[in-house]
Design a binder for these strands. Structure first.
Lengths: 269, 269
DNA sequence: AACGTCGGTTCATTATGTGAACCAGATAGC
DNA sequence: GCTATCTGGTTCACATAATGAACCGACGTT
């Protein structure tokens, strides 16, 4: 581990709950020597990555980060931040993956990626996703702004026999999605297509959209579901990260629960 | 110079005009060995500060910056407090406005705003502002901590024919700025760019940064100067208030003097 | 095929990072 | 007016980790 890596890892200890950290405290957190930590902080300070609160001598993140982030945003817009993650997801699952973004009360498709090695595969060619009938849409309703539920209720068009068309049906779906952390849609929009999704978040901590995998229903075994879910988690984390956000702890906990739960089921079966 | 500092200084070479840089090119820019630069980039990459464009193998700023910048702004909300004021300033003056923040002995650009209605306008694409050659920098030297003067003297690089390069030149500029309450730089950093600035203060009563307007020199009439100065005063007051500070009485007095003085001059002319 | 790039790698040399011990200043208990 | 224990910051002998010339294979031109 290079000394630069060690120095930069100090930055990970800053958080919303602890935005300013004293030298001794940071030593303890990082498990490193005080002199070393001090020199690392000095290097970070000369680069503008941290600064000292002149009153308390505690360290906090510095102003250089603002410009660099601005430049990063200009260099790599959202679509570019999702694309590579998406193709990795499609590759790992062997199914079609796509990303949606929530803008106002509408969920737009941003980018889709088809896995090459299945001859029969889901094709995503809708540009606005119905909230009540797609895995991404349900994810948005479950983890997005509250008014989205009413918007979804306002247009409960039935696409297939499985489409939820009553407010109670929808509420039941949403609540189970809140429990598991995964959106789910079993042939509710198109017959033979079963989808799973996970929410992604932006810098403000609000839902920014969803990442989803659409599979052909006949192929959708418990094993595949398990694989897709675990891949969705890393994809959601990566896209969220690329967009400058963080996954809320509640979502991470729900994922952890449903993944270990599925594992347990899988083992007993 | 620590190796961490060297590694971090690589990041300063990224700019809006050159957001992606190849290894060899970055070596030349940084004036360092290729192997060294490569290792530095690797360290930065593991920390998420840079990433490689998979297509070109060129390096660009990484996603970790987004999160850290978000946290920085949550800790020290500067951009939110400056942005609306800045756009009002740019709008009122018709010129490019920007805000800088002082951290330690370095003046960082925080945010810039270009007025839409002039086709020729100044573009701010620097991340650390030279103390001796910019209106903001001189403002910092004049109203910031005393040691800043020595720091400025220590690096009196000449950018244009008008750049002050001796300690006495600098002292004269600083003293006139202390009299008027406005930083001023007439083509001292870039030819054809003339700037005016005003200091901004934080809750502790110390200088926190500067707000400035950069104009094209050929457009810079006494009338425009008068307008910019009076708009700068309200902008500096507003940003200072948003940052939880107050303008020291001495500065307010200097502003009052130079505004009425300019008015008087204008009237007699 | 010869040449110039490019991104990336190797290895002997040595500069640089390391941490126990130390210092000065605050704060607290008595 | 003590000692005790924090804090941020500094010193110095020592060993680890940074360094850069030379090298590699790949790609593109000439």
């Amino acid at each position: 581990m290079s000394s630069t890596t060690k120095a930069l890892s100090l930055l990970t200890h800053f958080s919303a709950s602890q935005p300013e950290i004293g030298l001794s405290q940071l030593c303890r957190m990082a498990g490193r020597d005080k002199a070393t930590t001090y020199r690392h902080l000095q290097a970070l300070e000369t680069a503008g990555f941290v600064e000292q609160n002149p009153a308390t001598k505690h360290y906090r993140l510095g102003p250089a980060l603002m410009q660099l982030a601005q430049l990063r945003e200009a260099t790599v817009p959202r679509k570019d931040g999702a694309k590579p993650v998406l193709s990795a997801l499609a590759d790992a699952t062997g199914e079609t993956a796509h990303v949606t973004v929530l803008s106002g009360q509408t969920l737009y498709g941003l980018c889709a990626c088809e896995a090459p090695h299945n001859s029969i595969r889901a094709v995503i060619d809708i540009n606005t996703f119905p909230l009540h009938a797609t895995a991404s849409g349900l994810c948005a309703v479950a983890f997005g702004p509250q008014d989205l539920f009413d918007v979804a209720v306002a247009s409960l068009s039935g696409f297939t026999a499985a489409t939820p068309t009553t407010q109670t049906d929808l509420a039941a779906l949403v609540s189970s999605i809140r429990d598991t952390g995964f959106g789910r849609a079993n042939q509710t929009y198109e017959a033979e297509i079963q989808s799973l999704s996970a929410p992604v978040f932006d810098h403000s901590g609000h839902l920014a959209g969803a990442v989803a995998v659409a599979s052909v229903a006949t192929r959708f075994t418990p094993d595949l579901e398990q694989l897709i879910k675990s891949e969705l988690v890393t994809a959601a984390r990566n896209i969220t990260r690329n967009w400058g956000g963080t996954i809320p702890p509640g979502i991470e906990a729900a994922w952890a629960r449903s993944l270990t739960h599925s594992n347990a089921l899988e083992r007993t079966s």
